[in-house]
């Protein structure tokens, strides 16, 4: 992702209040062309509310954003013309056939008939739904409906695609298929805004992630950078053959910040896990202890997530 690709979504100080509750509080970020931008946060953090403001469903209380240069408040129709969304828990029209669903959405966006038909057939084919195009959408399973929703979004040829938890509730295979499709789309030039709870998904797919907690952006960067920013949550995991020695002895090793033992495995937190691993090996040899397992671990995105969302909560409590 080069930093000089054009900005597709530019969010400036978005605020949404529901009565006295501030669901989104001054959110700012920008997304460049061809990014897959992950939006992570615990339940109720304000993810869906942010997406709804960007897709023109909710009016912001304050602040604004542009999509392909069009202000969502003053040029709402033009900004919406560039995007398609798969809202959280949305559904297709169950009483229409698959084909009618896809054609209807194309028509609503004014896609010309020939293009709509050709592209619609391609999309249904790519999602493995072409054989069933005459069936009512009611007959589809949840995973297949989600694929059809994606078809109806894509037939409009969006430049920006908003996906609000697109894989939640799907089985492993359907989720993987959706992820593959999204990655392909991205390679074909579509910018993607992906809301998810799934850390692995965010880590695998996203060029950048924002972590939102209680309506505020807590962190925003490449997944790898976020992880390395948390050097103090790196650790060495060790398991001894005859049970762990007393924690104090391990905690006294040079470079170890903190010791945590759990079911025979000991985690030694350190900013220099490589060095600590060496120390552990020497320690074991000196004492004649056998090592069953020794590895260094980087923090997962989940650790990062917990770190940032937890930190904000502590601040709020203070």
């Amino acid at each position: 992702m080069s930093t000089d690709s054009p900005v597709v979504i530019d969010v400036r100080g978005l605020v949404k209040q529901f009565g006295s509750l501030t669901a989104v509080n001054g959110v700012e970020f920008d997304i460049r062309r061809n990014e897959i931008f992950g939006f992570l946060g615990p339940n109720g953090a304000g993810k869906t509310t942010t997406v709804r403001m960007l897709t023109g469903v909710l009016e912001p209380t304050d602040g604004t954003a542009t999509i392909q240069g069009h202000d969502i408040r003053t040029e709402a129709l033009l900004s919406r013309a560039h995007l398609a969304s798969v809202p959280e828990e949305a559904n297709v029209y169950l009483d229409l056939s698959l084909w009618q669903n896809v054609m209807l959405m194309g028509q609503l966006y004014g896609v010309p008939r020939e293009e709509r038909r050709r592209h619609g057939a391609e999309l249904l084919d790519a999602m493995g739904l072409l054989d069933r195009k005459k069936q009512k959408a009611r007959t589809l399973s949840k995973g297949l409906r989600q694929r059809l929703l994606l078809c109806t979004a894509l037939v409009t040829r969006p430049e920006v695609l908003f996906l609000d938890e697109p894989t939640s509730g799907l089985d492993v295979q359907s989720a993987r298929l959706i992820r593959e499709i999204v990655r392909d789309l991205n390679q074909n030039g579509i910018t993607i805004f992906l809301t998810t709870h799934n850390m692995d998904e965010a880590e695998q797919m996203c060029s950048r992630v924002a972590i939102i907690s209680q309506g505020e952006i807590a962190a925003i960067d490449k997944p790898a950078r976020l992880r390395s920013a948390m050097r103090s949550s790196q650790y060495v995991e060790v398991e001894f053959e005859n049970g762990p020695p007393e924690a104090a002895a391990l905690g006294g090793l040079p470079g170890v910040l903190r010791v945590q033992s759990d079911a025979g495995r000991t985690h030694l937190y350190s900013e220099q896990p490589g060095r600590v691993a060496g120390e552990v090996a020497v320690f074991a040899r000196d004492r004649g202890l056998g090592i069953a397992h020794l590895s260094t671990c980087r923090p997962s995105l989940e650790d990062v997530f917990l770190h940032f969302t937890g930190e904000l909560k502590e601040e709020a409590a203070r």
């Binding site: 033009l78 013309a81 995007l83 809202p87 949305a90 559904n91 959405m105």
Partner: peptide, 14 residues
């Protein structure tokens, strides 16, 4: 109720 409304109002129709 059928959860099709949000998608409808996010189309570029006024």
């Amino acid at each position: 109720q059928a959860r099709t409304y949000e998608r409808l109002i996010s189309t570029p129709l006024s």
